[in-house]
């Protein structure tokens, strides 16, 4: 397939995934903010949302201080923010349009409808409740895209590039949450049990849709190192770094097989997966959670570049 086509498929999936992620960050921040002060809200939730989105500099330059209005605007609707939900949906659609014939009509319609509906929304008139509906709508739009891909796309190389884009983006997103909240996961922090902590934990788990998953997996009260284990190493958890890495490796293996040639991307992905498989959470804490996460984010970005060099340009 044309490299440009593969590139568009890859970025289409990345942008949809990112839109979903932004909706989750906003959702979690809103829930934190809606709690009575002292019972969880510490006023830093909006700041933290900006930090996770990795757009702090641009945000501060444009808005100054982070509060509900400015963060909502910046992360959801801002034209100027290349990583707002608006920009993600618009970029997703542009990529989809460029490869219209490589998509099933279901996939195309999922992306096109999302963009068209987004444009009918009235940002100015959105109260808290309407905004909450908008967040749900965004997540539903992403699910609708995923579902259409899953149910209708041919399982060929194009499918592999869609899945790769989604998995790379998702790994990056989970890692960013960990990067911003890592201090809370350190065993040395405040003993778990206070109201504030409970809500902070809930927030992290909520951002990755893992609230229930945690209890299923560990059948324990929330413990920081288990949260970290769930998000980093647990293969049952679809947003964990290990799951994403397995997905990436699997798709790259498929491509290597289909094309009869393996390259730097396969080697890099396999190495990452191997490391994540052999690691235990204690080791990660010993050598530094923050260092581990930062290194993973860089590694994931390098992998994306290697994939681009091998296939997309």
């Amino acid at each position: 397939m044309l490299s440009r086509t593969a590139d568009s498929l890859y970025w289409l999936a990345r942008y949809v995934e990112r839109a979903d992620f932004l909706a989750r960050i906003l959702d979690a921040a809103m829930r934190m903010a809606s709690l009575p002060a002292g019972d969880g809200a510490d006023g830093a939730e909006w700041d933290s949302a900006i930090a996770i989105s990795d757009q702090r500099e641009a945000f501060v330059a444009a808005y100054g201080a982070a509060d509900e209005q400015s963060v909502r605007r910046f992360l959801a609707f801002d034209h100027a923010n290349p990583s707002s939900i608006r920009s993600c949906l618009s970029n997703a659609r542009n990529n989809a349009r460029a490869v219209r014939t490589a998509l099933t009509s279901e996939v195309w319609e999922a992306v096109n409808d999302a963009w068209n509906q987004f444009n009918l929304m009235d940002e100015k008139g959105m109260d808290m409740q309407a905004f909450a509906r908008f967040i749900e709508w965004t997540k539903a739009a992403a699910r609708s895209f995923d579902g259409a891909v899953h149910r209708t796309q041919l399982r060929n190389d194009g499918y592999a590039f869609l899945r790769l884009g989604a998995a790379i983006e998702r790994a990056d997103n989970t890692a960013r949450i960990l990067d911003v909240k890592y201090h809370m996961l350190l065993p040395a922090s405040e003993p778990v049990g206070g109201g504030l902590d409970y809500f902070q934990w809930s927030t992290i788990l909520r951002e990755v849709s893992a609230h229930t998953a945690y209890r299923w997996v560990y059948r324990e009260s929330i413990k920081p190192w288990l949260v970290a284990d769930l998000l980093i190493l647990n293969r049952q958890m679809p947003r964990s770094l290990a799951s994403c890495s397995a997905d990436i490796t699997g798709q790259l293996d498929q491509l290597g097989q289909a094309y009869g040639r393996r390259g730097a991307a396969q080697r890099a992905a396999t190495a990452t997966l191997g490391r994540l498989t052999s690691l235990r959470i204690e080791q990660i804490f010993q050598s530094g959670l923050h260092e581990f996460v930062t290194a993973f984010i860089d590694e994931n970005a390098r992998l994306s570049n290697v994939i681009a060099e091998q296939y997309l340009m």
């Binding site: 044309l2 440009r4 593969a6 190389d157 094309y259 296939y311």
Partner: peptide
């Protein structure tokens, strides 16, 4: 895109093609 689709050939833009040693290639995966 209709014609490319019906013929089963690639629909390319200029940037998908390049010339090397006076021969034309397309960039594929």
């Amino acid at each position: 895109s209709f014609l490319a689709d019906k013929m089963g050939v690639e629909l390319v833009e200029g940037s998908d093609l390049f010339v090397q040693d006076a021969r034309v290639f397309m960039r594929t995966t």
